[in-house]
């Protein structure tokens, strides 16, 4: 079975760990525990077309004091950027990290998960912000780790992109 390293990237408290927990173990907790360094999770994804052993590197969130080490990105087959819909600056952080990831890794599949869709009423992001991402050719999926909305779809989109890369590679 083919393995693939996937990095979860984004600002702090954007919901990276919650998305991974929901995706891997179908669990969710309201309690916030900040990720120190990196947590590794694993999930085997099977579909009619492919079978992939995803090794998810849930990296700590970025803020003004702490940047993600580029060495953690090395060898990643794809990246999932997590944006907190209720905090506008997290989109800028994610875009900057995506640019850095592309510089480090080259053109790899990237998916933007705009998280906390269950709090849509209090979102700071607006449609034009999301349109901007789409216009750049990025996959954008609204997610909620709390309600599971879009979680499977976001990872499925990334897995699809990785599978295509492997097929062409």
């Amino acid at each position: 079975m083919t393995q693939a390293k996937v990095c979860m990237l984004g600002a702090f408290a954007a919901g990276k760990t919650s998305l991974v927990s929901r995706y891997v173990r179908n669990e969710y907790s309201e309690k916030y525990l900040t990720t120190v360094g990196v947590r590794i999770e694993r999930k085997v994804v099977r579909s009619a077309d492919h079978e992939l052993d995803l090794v998810l590197w849930d990296l700590h969130g970025e803020d003004e004091f702490q940047r993600v080490r580029h060495s953690y990105l090395r060898g990643a087959a794809g990246c999932l950027f997590v944006v907190d819909g209720t905090r506008g600056p997290t989109l800028d952080t994610a875009l900057r990290m995506q640019a850095e990831a592309v510089t480090t890794l080259g053109p790899i599949p990237c998916v933007f998960a705009i998280n906390k869709a269950d709090l849509r009423a209090s979102w700071a992001l607006e449609e034009p912000d999301l349109d901007l991402l789409t216009a750049r050719g990025l996959s954008v999926i609204l997610t909620s780790a709390k309600t599971s909305q879009g979680v499977e779809e976001a990872f499925a989109a990334l897995v699809d992109g990785i599978a295509k890369t492997h097929a062409h590679g």
Partner: peptide, 11 residues
């Protein structure tokens, strides 16, 4: 899980 162990060792 050895996959997770190998990831953590690398990290």
């Amino acid at each position: 899980d050895p996959s997770i162990v190998s990831g953590m060792l690398t990290a």
